[in-house]
């Protein structure tokens, strides 16, 4: 009986010990992926910002500018790209909608971002674009890879439509989470005007006025390294309308402000990331280490049982001959 129990324990020990690395190194890279049907919105705000008034063509101080960013996973398009490329991809259709203090649109920039669901590497298929113009991303955008590393990444900037390094600047604690802080500075660069602007202004009209748009920003992200999801983002964003061929003329500030995530969105993002990171940690840490420990324990028990079963006098050892009855002694 002990022999059989020790064999069962041995099988269970091997099961647990083998499952541990299989979960971490085989199952995790295949199971951890961004869901293709993700829908998420975030509101950012810039208080006391400078904003251009297209009627007067001058900057004015406004109490607040809101930036509503929505991303929506396009499952049908993701399936088409998967059929074409054989890769598990996510297609995000996004919209950055900027609202002035009067509640009216300042600009509206749609984007399509196609990336590998597991590694978050950009995939050049499925019509990746910014504001209707095809682009080719060489860097990540919106989300870092699972198990983010302490290193610089290439990050795509939608205004310049180019990728540039975003630098790892250290580990911080944010709302009780240990996060990696990243920073990217985009120097003054000439950028295209958004196709949708207020008062029916078009890029052609602005160009005819003799103006072009320049932009500079310092972008900051606080990223949960387990899920790769940013839990906070800020930008020191500046935009100017500069006179074409007249560097001596003073540029018009189109926008200048410190853009921050609205506090209630920070809280909801932290809650979402906290729940998701448990699932990732389950596959990368809790289950592998727990199973390894359990495997060792079961193996020890199995060996103990086996040793006991081989000891003379144990229940499973062959029964010795009983001692002969004593000879009757005459009284």
């Amino acid at each position: 009986m002990r022999r059989r129990a020790s064999l069962v324990l041995l099988a269970a020990a091997v099961f647990c010990a083998a499952l541990s690395p299989l979960l971490r190194w085989y199952a995790f890279p295949r199971l951890a992926k961004v869901p293709p049907s993700q829908y998420q919105s975030v509101v950012m705000e810039a208080k006391n910002a400078d904003l251009i008034d297209y009627n007067k063509m001058e900057a004015r101080k406004v109490s607040k500018v809101n930036i509503v960013q929505t991303l929506k996973g396009n499952v049908e398009q993701a399936k088409k790209v998967k059929d074409a490329t054989g890769r598990d991809v996510v297609v995000w259709d996004t919209l950055s909608y900027i609202v002035g203090p009067d509640g009216k649109m300042v600009s509206s920039i749609p984007e399509r971002y196609v990336f590998d669901a597991h590694s978050q590497e950009p995939v050049h298929a499925g019509g990746e674009s910014v504001d209707g113009t095809p682009v080719r991303r060489d860097g990540i955008e919106y989300k870092w890879p699972f198990l983010t590393e302490k290193r610089d990444y290439q990050y795509f900037d939608m205004q310049t439509r180019t990728s540039a390094p975003i630098h790892y600047r250290g580990t911080r604690t944010f709302h009780g989470l240990e996060v990696y802080y990243f920073e990217q500075t985009i120097p003054w660069t000439k950028v295209p005007l958004p196709k949708k602007m207020p008062l029916g202004v078009t890029p052609e009209v602005v160009k005819q006025t003799g103006l072009e748009r320049w932009y500079s920003t310092k972008r900051m992200f606080w990223v949960d390294p387990v899920t790769g999801a940013p839990v906070n983002g800020e930008e020191l964003h500046k935009e100017e309308m500069r006179w074409i061929g007249h560097p001596e003329k003073k540029p018009i500030t189109a926008f200048a402000g410190h853009v921050k995530m609205r506090p209630d969105y920070v809280d909801s993002t932290v809650d979402l990331v906290t729940s998701q990171r448990v699932l990732v940690l389950l596959l990368t840490s809790y289950l592998p280490w727990g199973l390894l420990g359990l495997g060792c324990l079961l193996l020890t028990l199995s060996l103990v049982l086996e040793a006991r079963s081989r000891r003379p006098g144990s229940g499973t050892a062959p029964a010795e001959d009983p001692a002969p009855d004593p000879e009757p002694v005459p009284a």
Partner: peptide
């Protein structure tokens, strides 16, 4: 048994779901 379990879990994978019917926002929620 360990190999079979891991292969089964990864073969099943995650459901892809459907595109959300919610619109891309043009107002401040």
């Amino acid at each position: 048994a360990a190999l079979a379990l891991v292969l089964a879990i990864t073969a099943i994978g995650m459901p892809s779901g459907e595109t959300s019917p919610k619109p891309l926002l043009t107002t401040v929620p």
